[in-house]
Design a binder for these strands. Structure first.
Length: 515
RNA sequence: GGCGGAGUAGCUCAGUUGGUUAGAGCAGUGGAAUCAUAAUCCAUUUGUCGGGGGUUCGAAUCCCUCCUCCGCUACCA
């Protein structure tokens, strides 16, 4: 077994239902996790819910529930969406679990012992109406930017000595140029840290719903310190002898949305440095989705319901769209038109039709069996198969090193295009009449290329890829990247199933009358 | 305000360290084929490379300046 691979999503705040953004983050991790598993790595893919904090407490109170009752329920909907989207997580951590709370308190005590946490007081201009603190420079005519009146408030708070880590962080960024991706985000973090770091208030007294500060129960631990620790507590921390910890820490990738990059790229490494623990290898900040060019927000009423679009267009169709539509790292724009257009032209026409046209010729002209080449392959056949077999070598570094999800799909579609061109130039329908043995060679070559495509598509569209491989009769245990070679080629003469379309065109969904 | 990024064909974008006639996908137009989910394949764009100035034998690519858009600029998560 080659190198283990640990990939995480942020833990989601269950104050509201899962939205397209959280599904997207988890999906990106899922594609990477599935890819690494098929490539022979032992993978741990972690997600979960971040269940403490003032907002949860307030929402629960509003609903007349205890916070615990509320999060028990809310957390479930984040679990459900995983099943709907076929997201292959290995563990789901909740910050209200004992294993987590224990680890966080231990971590706190450690930092305190090392002198990185001290009791001070937090002071600032507080606006009761906004429930927010403002700095002197935020104020406009002695009032909050929102116009709310402010008062000077001081409250006791524990602080983390973030200021002590400014130089260490900058050194670390400099010596690990790949630590933060994409590059533009890395620049933002650098300029933030260069601008100077103040100590970070890491406890709250204004609400109760959190992990108590060890030794001073009037404080609860700042939710971000609490939340970030999930990456460790899910591995059994503080028990550093545990197999999960020794195997998987430090994490290979923390996938995050660009809005929470700072917590992951500044605070989290500083916390870990303070505790003398190794830092994760990469923080990847992906972009956001807009809806037809508009920012998505509840108040605009343009939220995209992940359940609804999965139901309407199909899970793999949506997975495909989300990954292919945007150069990974950039923002993406969602629209029904764009989704339908991609699904129809690329999934149904280019890929689906390639499989269908090939297999139906095989079904009709090769006695419902895999074609049996009885004459030698020609150069063109060999070249196409060779390209298929070696594709993994091009894809592997893209995903392993750069998480270049959309490029991975682009490469696959180049092979799809090659295969379609091959069908046209070889014209097996003509060979059927004037050179049947050659037809079998051509169809066999196509089936073999489709087998490779099916295997390589599994991380992206797992259910559909399985259908393709089923139709070819590829055994379930022969679907890893190790099987991407001629040794594991399809068995000539093996019986196949009657081919069935895998990606129905979506026109009928939108305009039923056009059927 | 400060720091950073971007402005390339109708649309979405690629364009490594400056070097021959600036590319891809989609859309549009013309054609081929008819195995297939009317899917596929081929051909095709007169693009002020945001404006202006400069460096250079030569700039989308470097420098200056202006315009426009975007991101970051700490204690909700």
């Amino acid at each position: 077994m080659s190198k283990p691979y640990y990939i995480t999503t942020p833990i989601y705040y269950p104050n509201s239902d899962p939205h397209i953004g959280s599904v997207y983050t988890t999906l990106c991790c899922d594609v990477l996790a599935r890819f690494m598993r098929l490539d022979g790595h032992e993978v741990k893919f972690l997600t979960g819910t971040d269940e403490h904090g003032q907002k949860i407490e307030q929402t629960a109170t509003k609903l007349g529930k205890s916070p615990q009752e509320f999060v028990d329920e809310a957390s479930k909907s984040f679990r459900n969406v995983l099943a709907v989207y076929n997201l292959s997580v290995d563990d789901f951590i909740r910050t209200t679990e004992l294993r987590h709370k224990r680890g966080v308190q231990h971590f706190w005590e450690l930092l305190e012992k090392k002198g990185y946490i001290y009791l001070g007081s937090y002071a600032g201009w507080y606006a009761v109406r906004d429930e927010a603190f403002y700095t002197e420079s935020d104020l406009v005519d002695g009032k909050a930017p929102t116009g709310a009146p402010v008062e000077w408030v001081e409250e006791p708070s524990y602080f983390f000595k973030l200021s002590a880590f400014q130089d260490k962080l900058l050194e670390y960024y400099a010596s690990h140029p790949d630590f933060i991706a994409p590059l533009s985000r890395r620049n933002e973090v650098l300029s933030f840290v260069k601008g100077g770091l103040k100590d970070l208030s890491v406890s709250r007294t204004s609400f109760k719903w959190g992990i108590p500060v060890p030794g001073n129960e009037s404080h609860v631990i700042y939710v971000w310190l609490d939340a970030l620790m999930n990456y460790l507590t899910a591995l059994g921390y503080p028990d550093r002898e545990k197999r999960d910890y020794t195997t998987f820490w430090p994490a290979d990738v923390h996938m995050v949305g660009k809005d929470i990059l700072r917590f992951h790229a500044v605070y989290w490494p500083a916390f870990l440095m303070a505790a003398d623990l190794p830092l994760p290898k990469k923080i990847f900040a992906h972009g956001w989705w807009t809806n037809k060019g508009q920012k998505i927000s509840k108040s605009l009423g343009n939220v995209i319901d992940p359940y609804e679009i999965a139901e309407t267009y199909g899970v793999d169709q949506v997975r495909y769209f989300l990954i292919r539509e945007v150069p990974f790292g950039n923002d993406g724009d969602y629209s029904e038109e764009a989704l339908i257009s991609r699904v129809n032209s690329q999934l149904s026409n280019e890929l689906g039709n390639l499989v269908q046209r090939t297999l139906s010729m095989v079904w009709k002209n090769c006695e419902e069996k895999m074609p049996s080449p009885s004459i030698p392959f020609e150069e063109g056949d060999k070249a196409l198969m060779k390209k298929a077999y070696s594709l993994i070598e091009d894809i592997r570094p893209l995903l392993q090193k750069d998480q270049a999800l959309s490029k991975y799909v682009d490469l696959l579609w180049q092979l799809v295009g090659d295969a379609n061109r091959y069908v046209d130039t070889q014209a097996p329908w003509a060979l059927r009449k004037n050179n049947p043995p050659r037809m079998e060679v051509v169809l066999y070559t196509l089936c073999e290329v489709i087998r490779v495509l099916g295997i390589l598509l599994q991380p992206l569209i797992p259910a559909s890829a399985a259908k393709i491989l089923d139709q070819l009769g590829v055994p379930e245990q022969a679907r890893t990247f190790k099987n991407l070679e001629a040794v594991d080629a399809l068995k000539p003469g093996a019986p196949i199933q009657e081919p069935q379309g895998i990606f129905p065109r979506l026109n009928d969904v939108r305009n039923p009358e056009t059927c």
